[in-house]
């Protein structure tokens, strides 16, 4: 059995969970077994049923106010109990903060291999062989898993969402949850903005933007495109932009449909975070900049002059 760990935000699923279900269901089919989608927290029946649109025939829901605190020990224990209950042998998590926190704990519990950041189904299931990026995207490795239990984390926006409507049964599980040993003192969360990790289009600025005062047109381009904003490491190190926007090997690793690199040279450490983007657009005044080797489309020119033109063109297109 394949156990899919879904995630909800204030009771709602996002594309991320539908992608996880799409993947987990296809994986179960490849393994000739069933898939079960697990939902933790307060999610309505109607919302749980939306997972059925992507092939989840069985959804298990666990809800308890003690789960409001994301306590890794409690969550991993809960997931292992559900897994034992249903005889799960393969786990699918998202390759994001929550999945990265839980997947290795489950692997530790079951003496299993964890393969993190997969984007495709296994190349073979007997033996179980699956590809993952290594050396921060500079290469791929085929991993053969020998353990009976297997834990995978799926790269967001890589496998895609695949509709496959089925009849869904929802089962509420009552599991005793311990009191969390960690306490939340404070929580800050921006709302309303497109999250970098969710975004299908990302507009990113580097040192070529010259000054934090030049970011207004970049933000405006992001707005007209419905995109999130990002930046290179020196830009966040200088305090021009918040640290949460830094992408690259030591920042966030993203794979949007389009990545706009504006005034970014394309250092290897930067590309490590964005090279999985489906389409890279570079605007740089230096025709030798390495970003042009990674880019699909490019303009050699001054970003300050081109940005306002881009905004106008997107507005025209959207009108």
């Amino acid at each position: 059995m394949v156990l899919i760990y879904t995630q909800n935000w204030d009771g709602k699923f996002k594309k991320l969970s539908y992608e996880l279900v799409s993947y987990g269901v296809a994986l179960a089919k490849q393994l000739s077994t069933e898939a079960v989608a697990l939902s933790v927290g307060n999610v309505s029946q109607d919302e749980l049923k939306t997972l059925g649109k992507y092939g989840a025939a069985k959804v298990v829901s666990v809800n308890d106010s003690k789960l409001d605190v994301f306590d890794n020990k409690i969550y991993s224990k809960l997931i292992s109990q559900v897994a034992e209950n249903f005889g799960a042998k393969v786990f699918v998590f998202a390759h994001n903060n929550e999945g990265k926190a839980l997947a290795p704990r489950l692997a530790g519990k079951f003496k299993a291999a964890v393969v993190s950041g997969v984007s495709h189904l296994p190349k073979s299931v007997v033996p179980f062989i699956i590809s993952k990026p290594v050396f921060t995207g500079k290469a791929y490795a085929d991993i053969k898993i020998n353990s009976e239990v297997k834990v995978l984390t799926l790269f967001q926006n890589s496998y895609g969402v695949h509709e496959n409507s089925v009849q869904t049964t929802v089962e509420e599980l009552n599991i005793e949850i311990a009191t969390p040993s960690i306490k939340i003192i404070d929580k800050q969360r921006a709302t309303g903005k497109v999250l970098l990790t969710d975004a299908e289009i990302v507009v990113s600025g580097g040192r070529g933007m010259k000054s934090p005062d030049n970011w207004a047109p970049l933000e405006q381009l992001a707005e007209v495109l419905g995109a999130a904003t990002a930046c290179s490491r020196p830009v966040s190190d200088e305090g021009w932009r918040p640290h949460a926007e830094h992408v690259g090997q030591t920042g966030k690793i993203i794979a949007p449909n389009v990545y706009f690199a504006l005034g970014i040279s394309g250092a290897i450490q930067h590309l490590g975070g964005v090279s999985n983007s489906k389409c890279i657009v570079a605007i740089n005044s230096d025709k030798e900049a390495p970003i042009f080797e990674a880019a699909d489309y490019g303009i050699i020119g001054d970003v300050h002059k081109i940005l306002p033109e881009l905004i106008e063109e997107v507005k025209k297109l959207r009108a």
Binding site: A113, I143, D296, E309
Partner: peptide
């Protein structure tokens, strides 16, 4: 519990398509 059996390099990308104007790009 697991082993690497092969490595692959990413497929080389086709060369960048350079354009002259924002309009062409969009």
């Amino acid at each position: 519990v697991s082993e690497i059996i092969a490595y692959e390099m990413p497929k080389p990308k086709p060369p960048v398509k350079l354009v002259q104007s924002a309009g062409e790009l969009i």
